[in-house]
């Protein structure tokens, strides 16, 4: 399997805070990898680094062997990386369907002048995008809601819509940031099924950040653990469950929470 994403000694600082510290990490084609860690460990920051929202203070990030330093988020998305956001960021004034359609932007054959001229090729393209968007919504059970404003969707559906929107960019690597947050147990089981299904159907690699251990242990082939920005462990779910440092990191948190 060839490698999609590679991080080499990646560090990012915000003022005095080192949010991600010397992280080495990689994801290969078609893998389903989990990324876990206590609150504030740097998981979301790592996503932001990969998608070009932040640039690393030091270290390298490569996509398919090419260094991404200095590229815009949209260019990185064009290289096959899509994501969802932990704090949902849908296009709030748009309908559910339009949220998905907006994400087809990368794959437009006729852009500005096509939209002005509205010729046959343009119309065919619009029809095809619409169809494809609907098909994606269907998979995630959102077809019925296609024409409602996305704001009016229940929370869980908004999270699902984020995934649909990310899929519309036709990624090779999908980054999911706490997709199960706020879902009830039945929804979570359904979500696990959907993630596996889309992974196989679209031949995706998935990097999953999730606090729910049942979800992570249930579907991930490999798991990396962050604590205070450092990668403290990496391995199969069974290895991770036994890892002393991981247990300490999580126990420490539970003690603090109690």
């Amino acid at each position: 399997m060839s490698e999609l994403l590679r991080l080499e000694k990646v560090t990012v600082r915000f003022g005095g805070l080192v949010a991600v510290s010397e992280v080495d990490f990689h994801v290969a084609e078609g893998e389903l990898v989990g990324l876990i860690g206590p609150n504030g460990a740097g998981k979301t920051t790592l996503f932001n680094l990969v998608t070009g929202v932040y640039t690393p203070t030091t270290g390298r990030i490569c996509l398919g062997g090419r260094e991404v330093d200095g590229l815009n988020s949209s260019e990185i998305t064009g290289m096959g990386v899509a994501r969802t956001f932990q704090n949902i960021r849908l296009f709030n004034s748009l309908s559910v369907l339009d949220n998905v359609i907006a994400a087809f932007n990368l794959h437009l054959e006729s852009g500005f002048f096509g939209a002005l001229w509205r010729g046959a090729a343009f119309r065919a393209q619009e029809a095809q995008i619409q169809e494809e968007a609907m098909a994606l919504l269907e998979i995630f059970g959102l077809r019925e809601a296609a024409h409602t404003p996305c704001r009016s969707l229940p929370y869980g559906d908004q999270r699902r819509l984020e995934i649909v929107r990310a899929l519309a960019t036709r990624p090779k690597l999908l980054l999911l940031d706490e997709p199960a947050a706020g879902m009830n147990p039945t929804e979570k089981i359904e979500l696990m099924r959907l993630i596996r299904f889309t992974q196989e159907r679209f031949k995706l690699a998935v990097l999953l950040v999730e606090h729910d251990m049942k979800v992570v242990m249930g579907i991930c082939e490999r798991i990396a653990v962050l604590e205070y920005g450092r990668k403290i462990a990496e391995g199969t779910p069974t290895e991770i469950q036994k890892d002393k440092r991981v247990i300490a990191a999580y126990l420490g948190e539970e003690v603090a929470d109690a």
Partner: peptide, 18 residues
């Protein structure tokens, strides 16, 4: 839709390839 996406959320728009 790209214009509207930029208006609604620039970071999400970029992440969707806009």
């Amino acid at each position: 839709r790209g214009f509207l996406a930029v208006r609604d959320d620039e970071i999400a728009a970029e992440a969707m390839g806009v």
